[in-house]
């Protein structure tokens, strides 16, 4: 009997339901799209799309509410964690997440993100770190690397003039109210899959009421870095990862069993 010829075709990869079927405004090769997709896949896998409320930032992801197939709000610059707090406090059974870039979260909104964590606010933050202000055209961000050229750090970021890039995952990990804090990268398929697992842990922490969770994602900005998408991925690996090491920075005891379960 020749069962080997008896085959059928199966869809092994398609758009997650939690991601709206629309084109995004992101530049070619920008990894925001990947970050969106893996968040959406996690929402699908957890079966929480219809009780999720996302809060979008100001910056390149300002239109994220159009891309997630969930209820959504658009916050003022840096205030997404405060807005998410307001939502979560009156809708405690809903899944609430913020999606923020490095200017939004690590500069103008650093007070809001830190205090959301200090309160142990039961929300999840997806923090996209691409070391630059993308939407405004490539200015220096708090996460811009020393020596990195931007339109507001001509000749490269100088530590004597502007200090040092901020390591948010490490900072947030020091806060008692943080349940799960991790840094991942989107520069290759293996790292993307690892990032997705971290995002799932973060949402599971929220679903179990364990407190604040954040996943920092090292991301690219080919347009403002002025390199090709492929070169941008290589730069993340060669230059960003050494300064922003990947890993779990805070895993509360109660979070550990959630990591084994998946």
């Amino acid at each position: 009997m020749t069962s080997a010829v008896m085959v059928e075709e199966k869809v092994v990869y398609e758009r997650p339901e939690s991601l709206a079927d629309v084109a995004t405004h992101y530049c070619p090769g920008c990894t925001h799209g990947i970050a969106h997709r893996i968040v959406a896949e996690v929402l699908d896998e957890l079966g929480v799309r219809d009780r999720t409320i996302g809060v979008s930032p100001v910056g390149c992801a300002v239109l994220a509410y159009k891309y997630f197939n969930t209820d959504g709000a658009e916050a003022a610059h840096g205030r997404a964690p405060a807005m998410a707090t307001g939502i979560k406090r009156v809708m405690p059974d809903h899944v609430v997440f913020t999606y923020q870039g490095d200017g939004d979260l690590a500069a103008i909104g650093i007070a809001e993100i830190i205090h959301a964590a200090t309160r142990g606010e039961n929300i999840t933050t997806i923090f996209v770190n691409n070391a630059i202000y993308g939407m405004t055209g490539g200015q220096m961000a708090p996460t811009t690397l020393i020596g990195q050229e931007t339109t507001s750090s001509p000749g490269g970021r100088s530590q004597t003039l502007t200090g040092f890039p901020v390591r948010m995952a490490e900072l947030m990990a020091g806060i008692t109210g943080s349940a799960y804090i991790a840094r991942r990268s989107l520069h290759n398929v293996k790292e993307i899959n690892t990032a997705k697992r971290a995002i799932k842990t973060a949402f599971l922490a929220q679903l179990n009421g364990l407190g604040f969770s954040m996943v920092e994602l090292l991301s690219t900005c080919p347009t403002n870095w002025k390199v090709s998408p492929a070169e941008a991925l290589a730069w993340v690996e060669s230059d960003m990862v050494p300064y922003y090491p990947l890993g779990d920075y805070k895993v509360a005891e109660e979070v550990k069993p959630l990591m084994k379960r998946r």
């Binding site: 405060a82 307001g86 939502i87 979560k88 406090r89 205090h115």
Partner: peptide
């Protein structure tokens, strides 16, 4: 919630008002 600032307070209000 006693917020960290008036900026945060009003944005928490904004969030809750959205619901």
């Amino acid at each position: 919630v006693q917020a960290e600032s008036e900026v945060a307070s009003i944005n928490m209000v904004y969030g809750a008002a959205c619901t």
